[in-house]
Design a protein around this nucleic acid. Structure first.
Lengths: 201, 201
DNA sequence: GCTAGCATGGATCGGCAAGTCCAGTCTGGA
DNA sequence: TCCAGACTGGACTTGCCGATCCATGCTAGC
């Protein structure tokens, strides 16, 4: 696997995306390697050719794939939280993204399947959370610089709380199918940011 | 299984708690029925005698078992959120509970394993969330009656947001091992409740 | 103390799915 | 054009684990 021909890279990608799609539709516990092969018109030797460690390596690759999507799906709003209307528009995008996704969170599914024994999976999630939180915190700092948020507020801690609310909202949605909690958490988080702002000069 | 003798009930309970303990230690994917049997000194026929639908029924029972623990572990504080110091003490108890529990959340593990195809698992979680949210909302109403929280605030929505923060904080803890997000979410949620309170007469 | 039916032990089955292997094909650089 | 090595197909092995079954112990009410 040192060198991949174009054809090889395409096959690898097809397997990866096929696995991701299957997981999004049926969950990870139901995913068998043969399912992926059938869906992607590939054979077992190919799968093990591109993912020598088999199922585990494939799942980890899916986790990375899905983790990348999460932040991308919030662009460009996430990187540009420089006005209250931008925050609102980001909030709407997040809600919409997860509403579309439905009850199944592929990333949570994969990581909870890989579990403790695979530190790699946790690293993927941890890094995602750090990047996500950092981007939110940047937005908070922007608003502080603009005098819209109390400068005494700790941006990282505020971002952490907001991120936790999002994660929990999505988690609850996985059971209830409703985005009420996600929306409430986002609205409360943003309201809290606005509440403590200095009086307009 | 219509009637259980005392001995039978004890065996059933032993299997249930053994399974729960194994899941808490090793995760659900690693749990095999033989593991449970070995740990509880029982035999396969007993397991299927008390859980005729086998693994799935056992996991569902574990989910219920763990769900009950969650709220019980927050007593008596959760049922008595009638002063700010009570809220703070509840907050500390929640953080402490999840810090003890460590990276593995048995309930999340079990439900994400049972997944979509078992509506029962989702029902267990959904009901837990409803009860939890209702108890928090009751606390909010108490504080509103006491004039400590803005009466214009929607108690259910505030409770939903706070609950989402908790869930997300715990979820993030499962990857990072840290309770920072959980604490930030709780603190922000409670701060938000206090922030909008009417000026003391 | 008898007996109906609950409780237990453990051997065995059956199937599934991960992973291996080898034989054969295609690709691209020299 | 040639060939090393990348790519592909699919049968096969292997081991695990959920589930079944039946023979045998035990309990509890009468």
């Amino acid at each position: 696997m040192r060198t991949l021909t174009r054809k090889g890279a395409a096959t690898r990608q097809r397997i990866l995306e096929g696995a991701a799609a299957h997981i999004r539709e049926h969950g990870v516990a139901d995913m068998t390697l043969d399912d992926v092969l059938a869906r992607t018109a590939t054979s077992k030797s190919q799968l093990f050719h591109y993912f020598p460690d088999g199922r585990e390596e494939l799942l980890l690759a899916v986790a990375r794939f899905e983790a990348d999507r999460v932040l991308e799906d919030q662009r460009p709003q996430l990187g540009d939280l420089t006005s209250w209307s931008a925050w609102q528009s980001w909030r709407d995008k997040v809600v919409d993204r997860y509403r579309r996704q439905g009850r199944l969170c592929p990333l949570n599914a994969v990581t909870s399947q890989l579990g403790i024994r695979t530190p790699g999976a946790q690293a993927v999630v941890t890094e995602l959370m750090h990047r996500w939180q950092a981007e939110i915190a940047t937005g908070v700092r922007h608003m502080q610089d603009a005098g819209e948020i109390d400068p005494a507020l700790d941006p990282d801690r505020a971002a952490a709380a907001l991120l936790a609310g999002i994660q929990g909202g999505v988690l609850i949605q996985m059971s209830t199918g409703e985005t009420d909690h996600l929306e409430a958490a986002l609205d409360m988080g943003i309201a809290h940011l606005r509440a403590g702002r200095p009086a307009p000069s």
